[in-house]
């Protein structure tokens, strides 16, 4: 079992698909992760499950990997175990809440991508202006404004060599790669290349944001001291003060306008 605890989660799920189903049942969504290099032991630790749930989960995982083994069912003295009932609403410290709020704007662009690509495919033409503006939002807001806060500030407060952080870095790089291909597609006037890579970016970032909001941020938040929270908040403020005030405003106005064009229009009589 030790071998699987220390193995990358994706390889374990590939060998034992039941493990993926067990993790999903316990609210651990590793199955769609494109990287999957996190170790099973870290994945389990990161979710801070109550002791009884954790014991059950490990029992089922071990049974799935070694169905022939006689594994004793865990007996947990619930009364003697201080079980912290996790609230469904995650409460973030102010700097982490700041990042979650930025995710909301990115998610709003991601929600428009299928409408944008559908419209371009049905007209057979690239909407160059809108694609360029979307790329500008992704590079200027999602990447420079948001991901840089994570890479240059947030990750200083955790182990940068932890598998989950490596996965986050890989996601960022992969996202940048998709956007490079979108721009290349624009230059070549290749509608398919533009649409496919916008869709790939959407799929990647949707999972990425979920991973951060539900797993990574609460995991980092748990170990932050009050002093670190204040420092991080102050560093975020510093970064923003160096940016012209109309820069984020410009991006947020773009989101509202693109939603008006595609989403609201769709539901209007």
């Amino acid at each position: 079992m030790e071998k699987y605890l220390k193995a990358g989660i994706k390889s374990t799920i590939d060998s034992f698909p039941e493990v993926g189903r067990i993790l999903e049942k316990h609210g651990i969504g590793c199955v769609p992760c494109t990287v999957g290099t996190c170790k099973l032991e870290d994945v389990v630790k990161i979710h801070a499950l109550p002791p009884q749930t954790l014991a059950e989960l490990m029992y089922f995982v071990e049974k799935a990997i070694h169905p022939d083994r006689k594994i004793p069912k865990p007996v947990i003295n619930v009364a003697a175990t201080p079980v912290k009932i996790a609230s469904k609403t995650i409460r973030y410290s102010p700097p982490l809440k700041w990042l979650v709020d930025e995710h909301v704007w990115i998610t709003r662009l991601l929600a428009v991508v299928p409408e944008l690509t559908r419209a371009m495919r049905s007209s057979g033409k690239i909407d160059r202006d809108l694609v360029l503006k979307s790329v500008d939002f992704i590079r200027g807001y999602a990447d420079r404004f948001h991901h840089m806060k994570e890479e240059e500030i947030l990750f200083d407060y955790t182990d940068k060599n932890a598998d989950i952080i490596k996965v986050i870095f890989q996601d960022h790089d992969k996202g940048r790669g998709f956007i490079r291909l979108v721009v290349e597609g624009l230059e070549k006037i290749d509608l398919d290349q533009v649409c496919i890579n916008l869709e790939n970016y959407r799929e990647l970032l949707t999972e990425h944001i979920k991973k951060e909001d539900e797993v990574l941020y609460p995991f980092i938040d748990r170990d932050l001291t009050t002093k670190q929270i204040g420092e991080m908040f102050s560093r975020f403020n510093e970064v923003e003060s160096k940016t012209s005030k109309d820069v984020p405003q410009k991006y947020l106005e773009f989101i509202v306008s693109i939603e008006k064009k595609f989403i609201q229009k769709k539901f209007m009589p």
């Binding site: 410290s93 102010p94 700097p95 009050t226 929270i229 204040g230 908040f233 102050s234 403020n237």
Partner: peptide, 13 residues
Amino acid sequence: AAAAKAKRKIPIK
């Protein structure tokens, strides 16, 4: 109320 009047923003617990 004091924090709302301040120019700097800080976390309050």
